[in-house]
């Protein structure tokens, strides 16, 4: 680099320079990058341990340039609890999808949050089971067609989609709970700020933190990537409002009634 110049943009140190297995147009890559940038900016990469889920991000242990653990389905918050209690000096995060966290892992996330484990949860909500081929998730939208709701999600039979950020923000234990999205550049900028706040609360030893991120699944939604982004805006954001639901000092916005 010529003298007198400074890099203004580079590959994150916390992200390995490898090809990922994610589908074209999937927003997992954007979220991975934002998590990595935050780890770099906070200078904690070398003392970070990430926990990968079962689901689309199952191979994320290959993508972060940090020590990683691969959890069984839904148990990442329990695994992270074990790591953090064993080594409170480490920065511990889980990276989970909606089937992993909101269905099979509901017990683990609720109690991890309620114990106030000082970990950070990156919760990627794309309203579907991606890895297994597009089945209905607890977060699947009413009427949404999936391989196990071929006529569209019938809320009279399976209930309404679960709003995890709202549920978690009802806990009395202090925590940071927010929801962002990545379907527009501006939302990505805001979401990265949420991630930075979430990790900062952990680094400061203050509280449990979780950022739910609305994500796309063009492959299983059957939409081109740009239409998938529009679908997030039109269908998901009205039901899954964006913002900060809870901070250790009180929430910025009132959660919707559950």
């Amino acid at each position: 680099m010529p003298s007198g110049t400074q890099p203004v943009f580079s590959y994150p140190e916390a992200l390995r320079d490898v090809t990922t297995h994610y589908c074209p147009g999937c927003t997992h890559g954007v979220i991975h990058r934002m998590v990595a940038e935050v780890l770099d900016e906070l200078g904690v990469r070398q003392r970070t341990v990430g926990v990968s889920p079962v689901g689309c991000a199952v191979l994320s242990y290959n993508y972060f340039a940090a020590d990683m653990q691969e959890a069984s389905h839904g148990r990442a918050p329990a695994v992270a609890t074990g790591i953090k209690r064993a080594r409170p000096d480490l920065v511990v995060f889980t990276y989970q999808g909606d089937g992993d966290l909101a269905s099979i892992g509901m017990s683990e996330i609720m109690h991890c949050a309620n114990r106030g484990e000082k970990i950070t949860v990156v919760f990627v909500n794309n309203a579907i089971y991606g890895m297994t081929g597009g089945q209905m998730a607890p977060t699947t939208m009413p009427g949404q067609i999936t391989t196990t709701s071929p006529l569209g999600r019938d809320v009279s039979l399976v209930g309404e989609p679960i709003r995890m950020a709202e549920i978690l923000s009802t806990l009395h234990t202090p925590g940071f709970v927010a929801r962002g999205a990545v379907h527009r550049p501006l939302e990505s900028v805001k979401t990265k700020d949420l991630l930075r706040r979430a990790f900062t609360y952990q680094v400061e030893g203050r509280c449990f933190s979780l950022v739910e991120i609305l994500s796309t699944c063009p492959t299983n939604w059957g939409l081109p990537p740009h239409e998938a982004c529009e679908w997030v805006e039109k269908t998901m954001v009205p039901y899954y409002p964006l913002g900060v639901f809870k901070t250790p000092d009180g929430g910025d916005r009132a959660p919707r009634p559950l």
């Binding site: 341990v49 959890a71 069984s72 609890t81 074990g82 790591i83 080594r87 480490l90 683990e108």
Partner: peptide, 10 residues
Amino acid sequence: NMIYGAAGAG
């Protein structure tokens, strides 16, 4: 799964 995490942390 907590013992998995703790054992994995050495």
